[in-house]
Each structure stands twice: as structure tokens, then as C-alpha cells.
Write a protein that binds this DNA or RNA. Structure first.
Length: 270
DNA sequence: ATCTACTCCTGATTGC
DNA sequence: TGCAATCAGGAGTAGA
């Protein structure tokens, strides 16, 4: 479930490769969401990693002027392996070999992607991204102005990366439950006060999840690396027909919006 | 300009 | 137990 907190956790987990030189790269399968430019990646031998950071749900590996852009899609994971380990896991697609270990990209569904960018941050996937949800720029006033004319449901709007980045289906559900806003509300009916509540709930839920991710970082450093994404305590997501944790009376309702599952409490989210 | 439905792919789960 | 149908967390794209 790579939404912002999971991507952030992955970025933190692989910081040990900063200031390391890429010795070589192995591409087992270049057929990700976009075909991986094998020749560009194979030319990176000897290049030093300067910084590893996150923007939206993207992982950015800075190499001087150029950059590697990774998206985990729905099922992508990174893991760290010992350099002398020859363990190949099904759906391992790309391996970066460093002096001190290997960084491996695994993705069963291959909805993820990996691009080489010649000039840092200049890439179509990075255009049109909204502000980071944990930044000052993302606040009630911003959100209100951004969505006040939109007829889309508020949940769909929250997941639109042009409005605010990093929120996927799970956290959109959790945020709106926290904010006590019904996911089906048309965005244009959201008041300034409600927009403010949504922005605060967004920060709260995401921060809590990042913290939970931090406690699972050791999984990355086990002999076989990342064991999958952490689970935070979810209040509504996946809890169809279970008692609402807030009012303890109503049960959680599941509906579908924009081909995605939506969960909410009819009593708490009026 | 906005919005919705479709699409890529494999694996886990559900239903018969 | 086996097999087929259904569903899954992202997001670009085509078309309404």
C-alpha cells in the first residue's frame, strides 16, 4: 500500500546508500508501467548517489545533475540485500549493486515505474503535482480555494494528486472519517471550516502513519529485506459491517466511488 | 476545462 | 480440493 507514509518509510530505510557509488545494475525485467531505459541505467556504473528523497509518492535518487525516479505503483517494494546474496525473489525486476549491499525493486503487478532523468526534477510525471500535505502550503484556505468549484466527490478530490499529493484510497477514507465528512459530499459544498478540518485530519493521519512506519524500519535490514508494508490501525478501511469505532452504534458502510472502495459511518459522517 | 471509465498486471480471496 | 470469478492500495489516458 504505497501511499505517502509508505514511500516516506522506504526512503528513510535506504539512506545508507547515500554517498555510495553504484557498482553495477541488473535489469531482470524492464517492462514496468513504462519500459525501463536499460542503456541509460547500465551507463550508471561508478556514479555516486548524492541524495535520496521523496516527492509525492515518488522516490528520487539524486546523482549529481541527473536523477532516478521511482514509483512503487500498487505493489512495488524496495528491499536491501547482502551483496553476496544470490537470492532471487519472484518479481524482482531491477537491482542496484553498491559496495555495501544491493537495493532491489520488486513489483508483482508492475504498475510501478523507474525512469532516468537527465536533468533533475524535469520530468512529465513531476509536472502538475500539488503541494505536499505536510507542508504549510496545504491548509484549509488552500484546499477550500482549490475545490470550491469542483463537482467531484470530496474523496475523489483528495486523491487527485494535482490538488494535494500522497493520499491514496486507504488514507482518503481514514482522513474523511477523522474529519467526520461524508466521502460522497460534492467538493463545492465543503465549507471553509470543513476544508480546514480536512487539512488538519490529513496531517494528523499521515503523521501517525509515518511514525508507525518508522517502527517497522528494522524489517528492511533483515537478511531478506523488506517484509512488506506496515499496517496502521485503520478505523474504517476494510471494516465493512463492523461497528464504528467512534459512535459504537452504526456499522461501517462500503460503497464504490470512481471504481474504488469507500468506507464510512453514516452516523458520524453526516 | 472537468470529470468518469478504462486500462495496465499478478496474486489473494471468495464462491460454487 | 479445485477452478473460475472477483477484487485489490495508482494514476495516465481517452473520450464524454
Amino acid at each position: 500500500m504505497p501511499e505517502l507514509p509508505e514511500v516516506e518509510t522506504s526512503v528513510q530505510a535506504i539512506q545508507e546508500f547515500v554517498n555510495q557509488n553504484i557498482e553495477s545494475i541488473k535489469i531482470y525485467n524492464p517492462n514496468l508501467r513504462w519500459k525501463v531505459d536499460s542503456s541509460a541505467f547500465n551507463a550508471l556504473s561508478g556514479i555516486k548517489v548524492k541524495e535520496i528523497s521523496r516527492r509525492a509518492k515518488y522516490i528520487l535518487i539524486d546523482l549529481d545533475r541527473s536523477q532516478i525516479l521511482i514509483h512503487l505503483g500498487m505493489t512495488g517494494t524496495l528491499r536491501i540485500a547482502k551483496k553476496n546474496s544470490n537470492f532471487y525473489k519472484k518479481h524482482d525486476h531491477i537491482e542496484f549493486i553498491f559496495q555495501r549491499g544491493k537495493l532491489i525493486f520488486n513489483d508483482p503487478r508492475r504498475f510501478g515505474s523507474m525512469h532516468f532523468i537527465k536533468k533533475s526534477n524535469e520530468h512529465f510525471l513531476l509536472d502538475n503535482l500539488g503541494p505536499e500535505p505536510l507542508s504549510k502550503e496545504f491548509n484549509g484556505e488552500y484546499l477550500f480555494q482549490k475545490i470550491k468549484k469542483s463537482s467531484s466527490p470530496i474523496k475523489t478530490t483528495l486523491m487527485n494528486q494535482a490538488h494535494v499529493v500522497g493520499i491514496g484510497n486507504i488514507y482518503a477514507n481514514e482522513i474523511l472519517f477523522e474529519a467526520k465528512i461524508r466521502p460522497t459530499r460534492k467538493s463545492k459544498t465543503i465549507t471553509k471550516k470543513e476544508a480546514s478540518k480536512i487539512s488538519l485530519s490529513t496531517k494528523k493521519i499521515l503523521k501517525r502513519a509515518i511514525k508507525a512506519g518508522g517502527t517497522t524500519l528494522q524489517d528492511f535490514y533483515q537478511p531478506d529485506g523488506n517484509k512488506g508494508y506496515f499496517k496502521i490501525d485503520l478505523a474504517v478501511y476494510g471494516r465493512t459491517n463492523k461497528t464504528c469505532l467512534s459512535c459504537k452504534k452504526e456499522v461501517i458502510k462500503r460503497i464504490v466511488q470512481s471504481q474504488r472502495a469507500t468506507y464510512f459511518c453514516r452516523k458520524c459522517q453526516a
